[in-house]
Structures are given as structure tokens and as C-alpha cells.
Simulated assay, not measured.
Amino acid sequence: MTVFEDQKKKMATGNGFIAALDQSGGSTPKALKQYGVEEDEYNGEAEMYGEIHKMRSRIITSPAFTDSKVLGAILFERTMRSEIDGLPTAQYLWEKRGVVPFLKIDKGLEDKANDVQLMKPMPGLEELLKEAKETFGIFGTKERSVIHAANAEGIKAVVDQQFEVGKTVVAAGLVPIIEPEVDINSPTKEAAESLLKDAIKAQLDALPEGIDVMLKLTIPTVDGLYDDLADHPRVVRVVALSGGYTTDDACEKLARQPKMIASFSRALAEGLSKKQSDDDFNALLGSNIGKIYEASL
């Protein structure tokens, strides 16, 4: 079995969840602030990203962060190009932790139109995918759009764009995580999720054998809504985003979804601080990982 086949089997059948360690751009200062690093503690973009890499490295090298509960990790491009203990981050994840590496590839969101935000253009995507796979050993990608309301035209545009990008990812030999997030505060969340499910199923049904994807979706209002998608032959796994819920809320809601596992970002790092001792940091991270793991079973 090749490494890719081994990783794909792990993602399809393993117990655990995917850690989302891919905060970028505008979300980085917020993530650092939650970690106890104020904006006056770094000067400029390079130092800011240096601080976030230290945070991610501390999480990844923690004894609590292993493949016994963490199946995969999503990396920001700068993190992919950085090292942990002398190894490229993705290589460290797989060889030292048994954790499958993914790369966030979207460049952020367009302005809202038709109650959705499409992904911005991704110039140089094919080159990035080739490098990610061949140089860094990345298994898959993640790309995010946002749905704000139950607008059928907007939702179709989001799903069409996601699958178009996903096919480019598959052509490069990677597995895409398609992420059309539904805003948890949307007044028409339940209706939007129903439209989204139908749009995704239509795209999945049109995929030829050999083109397999993962889905990253907001925890639905109707429990079990996405079970049919999880059983689709073109779907490796359906994972859930925390979407702004607290760790406890996200885990409670996720536990009611029998065929979704977590892919949490903020919930994973909740309560962690740069100023904590290693023992305190590892204990709290282990507690967060334990909660998310249990909710993903």
C-alpha cells in the first residue's frame, strides 16, 4: 500500500477528527490574541506568522496530539513551508505523529452576492498543488466558501465553484475537502442546509468513479441531515466545522450526527495560552482533544 492509499484508508475509516490549524490573514491576530499574544508583542507580518507557527508547533509536538485521536491536520501554506524540529511540518505530522496533512488553498472570500461569498481566484493553483504533493507530501486540500441565507441561486454557485476547484485538486493527485460553510447565525440556516445538501448530491452523482472528495460542513440543524452524503460512494468522509460554537456546544451538537467527525479550529485551541506551563498546556489541549474525539465517535 502506498503512503497515499494508507492515508486515504485512515481518513475513510479511522476514529478521530481533523485539527484545523490553518488560520491565515485576518484571522491570525484574533487567534494569537486568544492564545495570549497581544498585537504589540510582534512587529509586522513576518513576526506575526512566526508567533502563530510557534503556537501550532507547540500543539503538534504536544504528547496529547497523536493519531490515537487526531486523524489529520489542515495547514496554512506558510506552515507547510515551515519546519518543526528540522522537518517540514507535513512530514513531521505524518512521520512523527501519524497524522494526515492537508493544505488550505483558498485565498479568502469575495464580497457577498446572492447571500453567499464565493472563493477569490487562486492564481498558480496547479503549481501549488504539484509542489504540495511532490515536495511536501500533502495528502489533501481544504477550500472554504460561506452561505449566509437560503438563496438557491447563490448556493448552487458556491457548490459549482467548489466542485470545479475540487476536480483540479483531484487531477493533481490530492483529495479535496470541499467546505461550503453555512453561517450558524443565519435566520434561514435549516432551509439553506436543505438546499445545500441537494446541490452537493447533484454534483456527487455526476462525478465519475475515481474522483473522490471529502466534505466539511456546518453542523446541521436537523440531526443526521448529511448521513446520505457520508454514504455516497464518491465521499471519503464528512467532517464538521465548529463555526463559532464553543467547544462544549460544538461537541454536544456533533455527538448527535452519527456520520460526521470534527474538523475544529477555534474549539481545539480554546483556553490555550502562550503563558501556560507545558504541563498545563498539554493537560488542557488533551482535554479539548478528548472532548472533540468523543463527539466524533
Rank of each mutant, 00 (worst) to 15 (best):
S145T: 03
I177A: 15
P180I: 02
P187A: 06
K189I: 04
S186E: 08
V169Y: 13
V182C: 11
E153M: 05
V165C: 09
F136C: 02
A171E: 13
T135I: 14
V146S: 10
F139K: 08
V146I: 10
L174P: 13
Q162D: 12
S186C: 02
K133Y: 07
E179D: 08
T135G: 12
A132N: 05
V146D: 14
A150H: 01
A132R: 08
A149K: 11
G137K: 03
E164H: 13
K167W: 08
V175S: 12
N151T: 00
A152K: 15
A157P: 12
V169A: 11
K189W: 09
I155P: 10
E143D: 11
D183C: 06
I155T: 04
E164I: 13
T188L: 04
N151G: 00
S145G: 07
K142M: 10
A150T: 02
E134Q: 10
I155N: 04
G154S: 01
I147S: 10
I178E: 02
F163I: 04
T141Q: 13
K142W: 15
S145F: 04
G173V: 01
P176F: 02
G166F: 02
L174A: 00
K133T: 11
E181M: 01
V175H: 15
E143H: 15
T168P: 07
D160T: 12
I147T: 02
H148P: 10
N151V: 00
G154L: 03
V158I: 02
A171Y: 06
L174E: 01
F163Y: 11
G140T: 09
K142A: 11
P187E: 09
K130H: 04
L174C: 08
I178H: 07
P187R: 07
E179G: 00
F136D: 00
A152C: 05
K130E: 04
G166C: 04
P180A: 09
A171W: 10
I178S: 00
I177K: 14
T188R: 06
T135S: 14
V158R: 08
E143W: 13
E131C: 11
A157G: 11
D160H: 06
E131S: 14
K156L: 06
I177Q: 13
K130T: 01
V169H: 05
A152D: 13
K133D: 02
G137M: 06
V169C: 09
V146C: 05
K130W: 05
G140L: 08
A157W: 08
E134P: 07
T141R: 15
T141S: 15
I177D: 12
V175L: 14
V158E: 00
N185V: 11
I138Y: 08
K156C: 07
V158A: 07
E153R: 05
E143A: 14
A172D: 01
D160I: 05
K167H: 04
E153G: 07
A132S: 12
P180T: 08
T135K: 15
V158W: 04
L174T: 04
R144H: 15
F163S: 03
N151Q: 01
V165N: 13
I147F: 09
T141M: 13
P176N: 01
E131Y: 06
K189C: 07
A172C: 06
G166Q: 05
S145D: 01
I177N: 15
V170R: 07
A171M: 10
V169G: 05
V170T: 13
A150I: 05
A150V: 03
T188S: 14
V169T: 11
I177M: 15
I177C: 09
T188P: 03
Q161W: 03
